[in-house]
């Protein structure tokens, strides 16, 4: 039991030394009262041994390829989203149209056709102009 306690307290002292070594909060009282110079020397030794891994990074100056690749992925994702939205909306409109035609009868189809042809010039002309001028008003 005593030996077990000794190992535990020894481990706690070393943990405290590690916290101090890495500039984290540590128990100053414990550090002052229980010195472990051997372990501190080993920590410094480890630090020195690991310095060998400090030089290994080849430089890369341009990351535009990655940015372009991300652009392509984003564009594809946007197209997929827009396509899905288009098909969902088209399906919904056609279903609604079918439902109304079935419930109201052929008068709905005739009325809808007349309405569509009537508003066509008023919607197509401004749209065409906007498409040709790119949305700029040249007077």
């Amino acid at each position: 039991m005593k030996e077990h306690d000794h190992i535990n307290s020894h481990g706690r002292v070393q943990d405290n030394i590690i916290d101090k070594f890495y500039n984290e909060g540590y128990d100053k009282k414990l550090y002052e009262s229980c010195k472990d110079a051997d372990f501190e020397a080993k920590l410094e030794g480890m630090n020195e041994a690991l310095e060998i891994l400090e030089q290994e990074i080849p430089a890369v100056n341009s990351f535009f390829d990655i940015i372009e690749k991300a652009d392509v992925i984003n564009t594809k994702a946007r197209y997929r989203k827009e396509n899905a939205l288009f098909f969902v909306l088209a399906g919904a409109i056609l279903s609604l149209f079918g439902y109304l035609a079935a419930s109201i009868g052929e008068s709905f189809i005739i009325g809808f056709s007349i309405f569509t042809f009537a508003i066509l010039p008023f919607s197509l002309l401004p749209l065409s102009k906007a498409a040709l001028t790119g949305g700029k008003n040249n007077g």
Binding site: D15, I18, A41, K42, G45, M46, N47, E48, L50
Partner: peptide, 26 residues
């Protein structure tokens, strides 16, 4: 984080000693 770091450091020190690349006298 703290306990993993403590374990990692102790394990590295022990491994470096076993491999004989531990630098004494630092």
């Amino acid at each position: 984080v703290r306990s993993r770091l403590h374990n990692a450091v102790k394990s590295i020190i022990s491994q470096l000693e076993k491999r004989g690349i531990y630098y004494e006298g630092a």
